[in-house]
Design a protein around this nucleic acid. Structure first.
Lengths: 215, 215, 215, 215
DNA sequence: TATGAATGAGGTTTCATTCAT
DNA sequence: GATGAATGAAACCTCATTCAT
């Protein structure tokens, strides 16, 4: 059922947004169906009515936040300018997807939580989406390092870049609590993207030439 | 009551080890006292007898795994060889602490989980230990980049290195499930440490000279 | 969902009545949620569904029995006959509230138990209701002893009267067991009210004139 | 086992005193064996070792506090002065037994709690001791009202006096919390005894003459 | 004589889910 | 299409008691 702008959102949609926010904040295990319904102003039975189970709701949330992220902060297309700029744009989009408060929840924060404490429920969509992003990233890395790059090295470079990006999601009460004085905000996205890009560009080039020298 | 080496361990110790393993595997919220006791071959009330609560048990596990890590894989002392080698040793020790299967659980995996989904119970020991490791890392970075390095940049460099190390802990069912074909094993620690070191050394130097150029 | 008179009561109401009876009989600490649910023919989780906790159920029971008492045996209005008769009616109403078996539980028996072993949960409603009854009682005492009566004396007279009334609640297995051959029943209420009134009237007058002589 | 003055008290004695204090403060149900042992500086198994069970410890505490009360504040012998003075002394001794802080616990406070929430464990000693005090009280009442007094009336007069005395024990957190501004202290015992005596003397005389008139 | 360790029964509470309307 | 009531399983915790030394 679709609503025109300004019309009242349906219960299903409100549940989706409420759940997205709460799962993003607390993770799957620490979120209760009751709390999600309460924040959505819906009946406690509505989750099971609309989604069959908490588990299925979670999967719907992954789908929903994934689409939202794609819509708000699309990844740069492959056919663009210099690879260095594409890398920056790719990293920036990732950070924005994590730090933005415009969306109901953050798909990539959920992904980061899934890495730490996987919910078997997630398998499908997360793997698919990561693969999609990975393909873009590998393309960029190849453009920078040369297409003859070793597969193992490619995996590791992707790993190094991705880990820095997802680590950004451990904000507020997690990393910030132990490491950071001030929480990282959306407006810092560009600065951090710049840093990660520069850091990683140098890292990539160095690793490639080392590897090249050896072979 | 004291036991000679090799003799049967006391219940408290078995609980500690069982809990370390289970918390490391599943995280705090997904672990149940019943399961911990069962694996330890202990009565379900024994957690309360020995530790007062699940929460306090968790804190004891943090303490225990922290000490174990320090004992098995100590960080390199400050008074050592070249800074580049010290960086490598620092990173290697971290990866070993995460990947080793010799210990009952992994303190740094618990830290990584705490970053993703913080348990307020953790505050003390984790902050303290992170600060300790951070101090060592900052010292190395300063030795490499020069002691006049900007504080903001120092924070970001530490962030970039640490994120790669902790991300290694998202193994088995997490990252591995979505990213990796094969789980990372203890024997890979040196390879990965080498990679992260090289990648980060280049990143650091590049960021420093960029920063230096600007000033 | 509404029920016509005589129709089956809702679970919430059955829980309230069951809890009122059991708390009145055994006190808070000796009553278990399981027993309350069993007597109400309800699931053990229903207390939490309807009242959130045993504690909150207890507060609801205080409220419920208080209203019931007020409805069944209202205190005499201030604008009545001679003060001596008002005193009698006030005391009688109190005893009836304690001894009646028409109501699910006895608010004033709960109050008496709270005096002996206070539950911090009770504070609000009990203090309020006691203050209400105290105001009525002080008014009567003043009418009998003269309005210039000393505040200290007023407190003590109220104390002497109230203590006799509440002591009546230590019935069945308490006082009766040690002091009384036969339990005091509802039909004895008038006899006892008569006794306490006469005893206290004489006491009040004597204390007042003694006090008057001194001044 | 007896100890000379100044010698270290045995565990059994320390348990008795600790239990007396805690039972007096919280009542049987709200006191835990663990807390009693802790306050006594004894092992948690010591209660069962020395007394067989919590229940048996409680009975020992009743016995112990009863003897202590008798020793510190003996009731006036029957062969004394005027009945009015004897009544005063009887009431005063009761209040002192309740309010004194010299003793490890208060037998009469325990009695008052037993009235509100009887522990079947208590039966024996409490009935016996109450009967003893009742006999003294009845003797006094008879001396004042005349020995031909009606048995029913005698019971009621005893009831009226005793209820006022025991009500004093609902101190600190109970009655005081709802009724009293300041807690009643040991030094107030005489004032209260005076009040209860005067109040009750007048009540008794009035009830007797009323009863006499009727007959 | 005494104790630290351990236990089992039972308590309250949480929670996802199902039922009946 | 939606909901308030109800439920069963399982979680954590408390506690008096017992065991083994």
């Amino acid at each position: 059922m679709m609503f025109a702008d300004g019309e009242k959102k349906g219960t299903r949609q409100r549940l989706l947004e409420s759940a997205a926010a709460i799962f993003t904040e607390k993770g799957y295990a620490n979120s209760s169906v009751a709390e999600i319904c309460e924040r959505a102003g819906a009946n406690i039975a509505s989750v099971n009515y609309h989604f069959r189970s908490k588990d299925a709701l979670y999967r719907s949330v992954l789908q929903f936040t994934c689409e939202q992220a794609e819509q708000f902060y699309p990844f740069p297309s492959v056919f663009e300018e210099k690879p260095e700029d594409r890398l920056y744009r790719l990293i920036l989009a990732l950070l924005q997807r994590i730090l933005s408060s415009e969306m109901a929840g953050s798909f990539y924060t959920l992904i980061a939580k899934e890495m730490a404490e996987p919910t078997l429920a997630s398998a499908g969509i997360i793997s698919r989406e990561i693969a999609r992003h990975q393909a873009l990233m590998r393309e960029v890395i190849r453009d920078i390092c040369g297409h003859e790059i070793d597969e193992e090295l490619l995996l590791r470079l992707h790993f190094s870049i991705l880990s820095q990006c997802l680590f950004i999601s451990y904000n507020e009460k997690g990393r910030q609590h132990h490491l950071q004085k001030n929480p990282i905000q959306f407006k810092d996205a560009e600065i951090f993207a710049r840093h990660i890009t520069d850091f990683s560009l140098a890292g990539m080039r160095s690793c490639c030439s080392l590897s090249g020298d050896l072979s």
